[in-house]
């Protein structure tokens, strides 16, 4: 079932890719192949192999259960949040939070996770800033 679903998605994406290439306007001075042909080839192969996946699926992989899915989703949210806050809030606080939460997700141990988060944040900051010379700010620039 998973394979069929993925194959179906691939086939649809291939069609969309094909359509998107079709809509490109060929410039009149283009080379014999032009900007469309190679995308057409890719889309066709992707469509065929997606269809093969629908017709001949492998057995289902072992998907994690619902709770673990929630955890994974939460991890993604944390990472996205980290991506958005890294610049405005400075390095130390978002890193400590994100690292701590990820650590807790891998090994549920609160004090361990808190220490991991804080230490990782401080050590990495020192390494990045002073050894590698990256232009990081420890805290939000608005505060300083």
């Amino acid at each position: 079932m998973s394979d069929r679903l993925f194959g179906f998605t691939t086939a649809i994406l291939a069609l969309a890719f094909f359509a998107s290439a079709y809509q490109l306007e060929s410039p009149f001075f283009a080379d014999p192949v032009g900007p469309k042909t190679f995308p057409y080839i890719i889309a066709s192969i992707a469509f065929i192999s997606g269809s093969v996946m629908i017709l001949f699926p492998d057995s289902n992989p072992k998907w994690p259960n619902f709770v673990i899915f929630l955890k994974l989703g939460f991890a993604v949210i944390i990472l996205v949040g980290y991506a958005f806050t890294l610049k405005p809030l400075g390095f130390l606080i978002p890193t400590a939070l994100a690292a701590g939460i990820l650590s807790f997700q891998i090994a549920p141990n609160i004090s361990g996770a808190v220490i991991t988060g804080i230490l990782l944040s401080i050590i990495l900051f020192i390494v990045f800033k002073y050894f590698l010379g990256l232009g990081l700010f420890p805290f939000s620039r608005g505060l300083i």
């Binding site: 890719f17 490109l24 190679f38 890719i42 192969i45 992707a46």
Partner: peptide
């Protein structure tokens, strides 16, 4: 089939951006 899907995925992603020969943006 899975190998081919994987290759196409990579090639398709590589097409994104400005096409160097014509200067037009794609995808």
């Amino acid at each position: 089939a899975k190998a081919a899907v994987s290759v196409c995925l990579g090639l398709g992603l590589a097409m994104i951006g400005v096409d160097n020969s014509t200067g037009m943006t794609r995808f």
